[in-house]
Write a protein that binds this DNA or RNA. Structure first.
Length: 120
DNA sequence: CTTATGACTTTCA
DNA sequence: CTGAAAGCCATAA
């Protein structure tokens, strides 16, 4: 039997930590933000930051409404992908409404993690 | 089943 | 300090 470097049967296990990620994101209080690594660590995978991004990426529009994905940002306290589409603008707006100070710098939004990073 | 890529993070030089 | 590479799990082809 070869050692599977990558899990082909990803759907195996039943309890996908995807749902855990969603739960963590939903637990983020308003006016606070969390990083992918933080959510991943809380979800049980300290290095699963990418999965957090994927998890949010695969979320349906209706799920996005129930999930404060805008409170999830990268380690720099900045929005990833250099802003996908209008989503970044919406995120910044939502965060501002919650009281989070979002600085705009050359098309990128920066958030003060020292002040707004969600701490358990 | 294998290869490649991704809303990321951390470590080494 | 900056830059490059590896690591991680899952999805797509």
């Amino acid at each position: 039997m070869k050692k599977n470097s990558q899990r082909q049967l990803s759907t195996k296990g039943g309890d996908n930590f995807y749902h855990r990620i969603y739960g963590m994101v939903k637990v983020i209080p308003p006016g606070k933000v969390a990083t992918y690594g933080q959510i991943a660590a809380l979800a049980g995978s300290p290095r699963g930051a990418r999965m957090v991004g994927w998890a949010l990426h695969v979320l349906s529009d209706e799920q996005l409404v129930h999930t404060p994905w805008h409170r999830v940002i990268n380690r720099e306290g900045r929005i990833s992908t250099t802003c996908f589409e209008h989503t970044c603008d919406e995120q910044a707006l939502l965060l501002k409404k919650e009281g989070v100070i979002v600085r705009k710098s050359k098309g990128n939004y920066w958030i003060d993690l020292k002040q707004f990073q969600w701490k358990v």
